[in-house]
């Protein structure tokens, strides 16, 4: 017994070193798997406060860009309004809807809520963003985040009371189902970790012949994003050696260097769909 104590006292520093390294490795492995760690919430609160303070100052330097992007978003929405379309054809005659406005509410599927982005990385191998709202505003892990122009930014992975952490598209674990707008072929969007704003799309069959500039949109196959949001535009497409798929390089629609605001998408159908999926997986 005495010898054990002597041994521990003699090699205490080596043992402490090994113990600390093991703790670190456990943190790395656990966190990248489950996207949450024991300290997740508290660290979120503290670093969130510091980030919010810093953003308060930095925000003024980006007011011009933020304003421009909001004006553009407004322009886009005006163009979607009913009265901006001329309807000469009698078939398209405007009809009064018999449904009451209030009764629409239960049929609403998506709700968008704005949130300020208070921290944003693009240079790291795995990038995250932090939003200034959290579970108090109804944000939950798994919700999608888009820009004012409707371009996809990422998915919420972690929330505290007042802050939410978003896994950006520029993250090695980020996998989003995308679709070529022209031909309708679907594939998976990934980031190879090399250059910000440049993504890779796998799983598109060689039959599709995308050209530079083609739009890639969300497929609507998950509950995170509605169908038809812009993900990016094709830069080049090459056949992937050894497989029957194409390797498409694309530029993300959201410019991650300049985003200031995000819109979080709450899908009211998500709980129901996810419950069914869980049941199906259990039955296997």
């Amino acid at each position: 017994m005495r010898n054990i104590f002597l041994f521990i006292r003699r090699y205490f520093n080596v043992l402490l070193f090994v113990v600390l390294q093991v703790i670190c490795l456990l943190l790395i492995v656990r966190y990248s798997k489950y996207h949450q760690a024991i300290f997740g919430n508290t660290a979120n609160q503290i670093t969130g406060k510091i980030n919010a303070g810093y953003n308060n100052i930095e925000y003024y330097f980006h007011l011009r860009q933020t304003n421009d992007s909001l004006v553009k978003a407004n322009e886009m929405l005006y163009n979607k309004l009913r009265y901006s379309f001329n309807l000469p054809d009698s078939v398209n005659r405007e009809m009064l809807d018999s449904m009451k406005v209030d009764s629409l509410y239960p049929f609403r599927q998506y709700r968008f809520s704005s949130a300020k982005i208070i921290a944003n990385d693009v240079t790291l191998p795995n990038n995250f963003l932090v939003l200034s709202k959290g579970s108090n505003d109804g944000f939950k892990p798994g919700m999608g985040v888009i820009t004012a122009q409707g371009a996809v930014i990422g998915i919420i992975t972690d929330v505290s009371n007042n802050y939410a952490v978003v896994m950006s598209l520029l993250h090695k674990d980020s996998k989003i189902s995308g679709k070529l707008l022209k031909s309708g072929e679907t594939g998976t969007l990934l980031w190879d970790g090399k250059e910000p704003n440049i993504l890779v799309m796998n799983g598109v069959s060689k039959g599709a012949k995308p050209i530079a500039g083609d739009s890639i949109i969300t497929s609507g196959f998950s509950t995170t994003f509605p169908k038809g949001l812009l993900l990016g535009r094709v830069i080049s497409a090459k056949p992937d050696e050894g497989t029957s798929y194409l390797k498409i390089t694309l530029r993300s629609a959201a410019n991650f260097n300049t985003i200031e605001y995000g819109y979080v998408i709450d899908n009211f159908d998500a709980p129901g769909v996810n419950k069914l999926l869980e049941k199906a997986i259990k039955q296997q």
């Binding site: 402490l16 600390l20 670190c24 943190l27 990248s32 300290f39 660290a43 670093t47 990385d121 932090v130």
Partner: peptide, 23 residues
């Protein structure tokens, strides 16, 4: 070593990826 761990851990908390710099 404990100070080292704390320093690395603080940076990791800002980057939302615990472990790398602490190690």
């Amino acid at each position: 070593m404990i100070i080292g761990f704390a320093v690395g851990f603080t940076l990791d908390s800002f980057r939302h990826q615990p472990g790398f710099h602490a190690s």
